[in-house]
Nucleic acid binder design. Structure first.
Lengths: 195, 195
DNA sequence: ACTCCATATTGCAATAGTGGAATATATATG
DNA sequence: CATATATATTCCACTATTGCAATATGGAGT
């Protein structure tokens, strides 16, 4: 229901081709609702069909022509209307947490390896958000405020994951695991003191 | 790719019918990878087709027969194998953040209303996770540790949203908005001091 | 010279997930 | 007595999203 609006938001910042959306998206609204290029092109077509955007073909030589989309008044109306309805909070959907939930049938060595990898990737993302955020620190417009607030959610999320990964690595260390009761960890090399 | 594993994890705790999975799921693994009943039944069928679970029909009168699924050794193998591969960190996908990103074309009154609603819902979820977490506080098994850690991610997530909503409500208050430069907020009743 | 990358769009098969209807009965609530 | 809710499964249409291949060319790197 809503890549539609993410793209509309992207267009609201200025006319863009599908290529533009797909590319610069990932550095802005796309942080909070991502899509692959094939979906972007399809959705742009729908926006045009529904009168929320208009398109204009721009001739180029050597490359396929650019098709530039511009948001219409109807498009802005749609955004406005959308923002007056309640939005569902997003659901957590994370493989790693599913694995934790099934820890008894999971390779704990693998879990630790994953944890280390993810710590890295959360750090990366955190600094990505932080960089964007810092670039806005002197901005005083409404748009800046919106971007700042959104990025702050991203930063909080990544920071929490970072903290949690560190703690989880300790709580899942071989030493810690070996102190648990009932331990017969499958796929885990640690010799737990079995009953 | 992975409601499959969430269901496998559910089955790993004991044999379950589709109805059981759909129902009790929401109080456990389903926190971290949810599915509607129609999908659950479909996936259970696939697990059986692929030999990761076996099913047994249990006669009942008055109600349709229960079809109880039990995880197989192949199923446990699949979980183990899965946990040795890296998992992608989940992506943020939140309508509300998209709206913030497009704040210039959004009804700020609506945004504030949404913010208030969400504050509520994050509080609810937080206490849901916290209750589950507290019930485990004396548990010392590996399974308990896994559940605790997973729930802690949920708690962190909800707590951060709670904090952030409160802060955002201040930063988006009519008074705060009116102090911004360049303000011609659409759909916002506040008389911004236009240039 | 060769390969890789950026530009730019289209199209399609496949997977993932939602939402609702249909079916059948027992029990609880008003 | 009517209505809702819990039990239990199946099926289907639909939306959402991914991933890949095809097409065409200019420029940068090795």
């Amino acid at each position: 229901m809503s890549i539609k609006f993410a793209i509309l938001v992207a267009l609201s910042e200025g006319p863009k081709s599908g290529y533009d959306v797909a590319k610069h998206f990932d550095q802005s609204v796309g942080f909070f609702w991502h899509a692959r290029h094939s979906q972007v092109y399809r959705e742009l077509g729908k926006l045009r069909d529904n009168g929320l955007a208009v398109s204009e073909e721009i001739e180029q030589s050597g490359k396929p022509n650019r098709i530039v989309f511009t948001i219409t008044d109807n498009g802005r109306e749609a955004l406005l209307k959308w923002s007056r309805e309640p939005t569902e909070p997003m659901e957590i959907k994370d493989n790693f947490l599913v694995q934790l939930y099934g820890i008894e049938n999971i390779d704990i060595e693998g879990l630790r390896a994953n944890l280390t990898l993810r710590l890295e990737s959360h750090r990366d993302r955190h600094s990505q958000y932080a960089a964007k955020h810092q670039a806005l620190e002197n901005g005083g417009t409404l748009a800046d405020l919106g971007h700042q607030l959104a990025l702050e959610v991203g930063m909080r999320w990544e920071r929490e994951w970072e903290d949690w990964c560190t703690i989880a690595l300790e709580r899942l260390s071989p030493q810690a695991i070996s102190k648990l009761t009932n331990v017969v960890p499958i796929g885990n090399k640690t010799p737990g003191h079995t009953a």
